[in-house]
Simulated assay, not measured.
Amino acid sequence: MQISKRNLLTGAALAAALAAGYGLANLRASEVGETHGEAGHGEDESKAEEGFVPLAADQAAAAGVAVVTVGRGGGSDIRLTGRVEAAPNAHAVIGAPVAGVVERVLLSPGARVGAGGGVAVIRSADGALVRAEASAAAAEAQAAQAALAREERLLKAGVTARQDWEAARAAQVRASAQASAAQARVAAFGSPGAGGQTTLRSPIAGLVTSVQAAPGGFVAQGAPVAEVSDPTRLEVVFNVPADSAARLRVGDHLKLVGPDGRETPAEIVGVAPLSQGTTGAAMVRARPLDAGLTPGAAVSAQVPADGKGLPSVPSEAVQTLEGRSVVFVAEAEGFRARSVTTGRTGGGQTQIVAGLEAGERVAGRGAFVLKAELAKGEAEHGH
């Protein structure tokens, strides 16, 4: 039996055909004649190994085949469902620190900005006023410092009374405090320049997701002007029954399974017992260790509770071939059908009593595509 890699179609064509009710084998039917013409009698001379589907990793992904790692079940694993969200420190709303007119918008939605990068510039009369007050306060503090220095010289020379020096020192302390307060107010107003221009800056690096201002528009103090998010800093949030949450610890590792069936390793970064008071559920937060998840996507997870029990796989990984249960084990150049003995099935998982070890990698979602391809290859060889 020979199954040529070049006969596999692109992922887009496969998805369309599967939606129409066809399998990968039917998609290849139009090319069988061409293949026989090119191969001739070479097919009989180079038979593929029995039960083996040659398929590279990128071709498997394009065909909708997701590879998963065999875990251990036995009913002791904790199974969770949650949603991908932005991490708490991965989203920032940039508000106007002072009321004013938008002079310039520096970035548009979709643009990347670094931490401290400018997003917009507003001109504000209040900003110009606080800057002027700060400059005046700084000048008064400088004058008070000079007066204190003069009184110190006169006191040492015996020309002035000590009470005059003390009065000058009190004035200098007061002026310095007023200057510091004025500078703090300037900072709170976004550090406007002498002309009242204030540059609004992003506190985090990321992508500009929205801009709520346009040049010439007026913004009130505190009004949001833009939002920035870092799509690489994600977390998965689970609502977990209290008894299950009690068995989880910060630092525990788990496997996330996305909507496409692909696995992503993650680490638990927070467990808040009974955070949902009305339901008695706890909130568990996990940080993905690899990229590939999309904010808002629903995911599931399996946490090995004790490392014991039988190997388990997603139920869709088990296919029936010639009356026997098989799984498709991932190898370097494709997938090999292996007979297994199944046990209990529940929660979307099937126990494997014999034929498979924990830690091996098998085709999960999309395993039926490999079954169809194998059956098609055998039918072609039979003719």
Rank of each mutant, 00 (worst) to 15 (best):
L293P: 11
A60M: 07
F238M: 08
P259N: 05
K255G: 06
A181T: 10
E373W: 11
A92F: 06
S191P: 01
E360C: 10
R150I: 11
V219P: 01
V236S: 08
S339W: 00
A179L: 02
A138L: 08
S244N: 14
A367Q: 03
A282M: 04
L289E: 15
G348E: 02
L106R: 12
P231K: 06
S30C: 01
R83S: 08
V173F: 06
A372H: 09
G82P: 07
P259Y: 03
A358G: 15
A144I: 05
V299H: 06
P273S: 14
Q197N: 15
E166R: 14
G377S: 12
E152Y: 07
S339V: 07
G195N: 15
S46N: 09
A136S: 02
Q142P: 03
G296R: 12
A205W: 03
E235L: 10
A372D: 12
V113R: 01
R344W: 01
T35Q: 14
R153E: 11
S46D: 05
Q163Y: 11
Q302F: 01
Q319A: 04
A39S: 09
T198V: 15
A20N: 10
N89K: 12
H91P: 00
A305D: 14
R72V: 05
D230V: 02
Q59Y: 02
G323I: 05
V98Q: 14
A177P: 11
D252T: 14
D77F: 01
S135I: 03
S339E: 04
V299M: 08
R131W: 08
E140Y: 04
P241H: 04
G216Q: 09
G33V: 12
S108N: 03
L55E: 07
T264N: 05
A246E: 13
V340E: 03
V32P: 00
G270P: 00
G343M: 06
A281K: 14
V113C: 00
Q349F: 08
V32M: 02
L24R: 00
G222S: 14
V340A: 09
G82S: 05
A168L: 08
G382V: 07
A226I: 02
T294I: 14
A305C: 02
F52K: 04
A213P: 05
S325D: 12
A115K: 10
E166A: 11
Q276N: 13
Q319C: 03
G206C: 05
Q302H: 08
L321C: 02
L254D: 13
A291I: 03
R287I: 04
T199R: 09
R79M: 12
I78E: 01
P192S: 07
A136I: 00
R361N: 11
A125L: 11
A379P: 00
G334L: 05
A282N: 11
A56R: 13
L148A: 09
Q302N: 13
R83K: 09
P215C: 05
L370G: 01
F368S: 13
A223R: 07
V113E: 03
E49H: 13
P88T: 15
L234A: 00
S30M: 07
V237D: 02
V173Y: 08
L107K: 07
D77E: 13
L106Q: 10
G74E: 12
A128S: 15
L274G: 02
E166P: 07
A86E: 11
L9T: 09
V53D: 02
V208D: 03
S191A: 13
G382T: 08
A25K: 01
